[in-house]
Amino acid sequence: MKKILLVCAAGMSTSMLVKRMQDHATSIGLEVDIEALSISDAKDKVDTVDIVMLGPQVRYQKPEVEEIVNGRIPVLIIDMKDYGAMNGKAVLDTALSAIQ
C-alpha cells in the first residue's frame, strides 16, 4: 500500500483534497493511505510515507522538507490549479507517477 502525505499550513484545506483522492482511489480499486498534516506535524511522519506533497501555500518549505527526507522519497509541490479545483484524480495520479 502506498502512503501519501499532503502538507499545508494547518492541514485543514488539504483534508478536502485527501477525501477526493481517496474517493478516486476507491473508484479504481486502489488501496492507498493518504493523510493531511500541518508542516510542523509532518516532520514526525515523513519517515513512514512514500511521498510528501506540499500545498501551493507552503511551497517555500520544500527545501526544508527535502533536507528532512534526505533524498529517500520524492517531495513535490501540488499543482496550484489542481489544488484550487480540488482535483483528487490529478493529484493522486501525480503522486503515483512519482513513486513508481
Rank of each mutant, 00 (worst) to 15 (best):
D33V: 09
I34N: 12
I34H: 09
I34M: 11
E35R: 13
E35T: 14
A36C: 11
A36K: 08
L37G: 02
L37V: 01
L37W: 01
S38R: 02
S38D: 10
I39P: 04
S40R: 07
D41P: 02
D41L: 13
D41A: 15
A42R: 09
A42Y: 10
K43R: 13
K43V: 15
K43I: 15
D44T: 10
K45Y: 09
K45C: 08
V46Y: 03
D47P: 00
D47K: 13
D47Q: 10
T48Y: 12
V49W: 10
D50C: 15
V52C: 02
M53K: 04
M53P: 09
M53N: 08
L54Q: 09
G55A: 14
P56Y: 03
P56I: 08
P56A: 01
P56V: 06
Q57Y: 03
Q57S: 03
Q57C: 02
Q57N: 05
V58M: 00
V58T: 00
Q61G: 00
Q61I: 09
K62S: 01
K62F: 01
E64P: 01
E64K: 09
E64Q: 05
E64R: 02
V65T: 06
E66P: 09
E67H: 12
E67G: 13
E67F: 09
N70E: 12
N70I: 03
N70F: 02
G71K: 08
R72C: 11
R72I: 13
P74E: 11
P74V: 15
V75H: 06
V75W: 07
V75P: 12
I77F: 02
I77G: 12
I77P: 05
I78Y: 09
D79I: 02
K81N: 08
K81W: 05
D82R: 06
D82E: 08
D82A: 12
D82K: 11
Y83M: 04
Y83S: 04
G84M: 06
A85T: 09
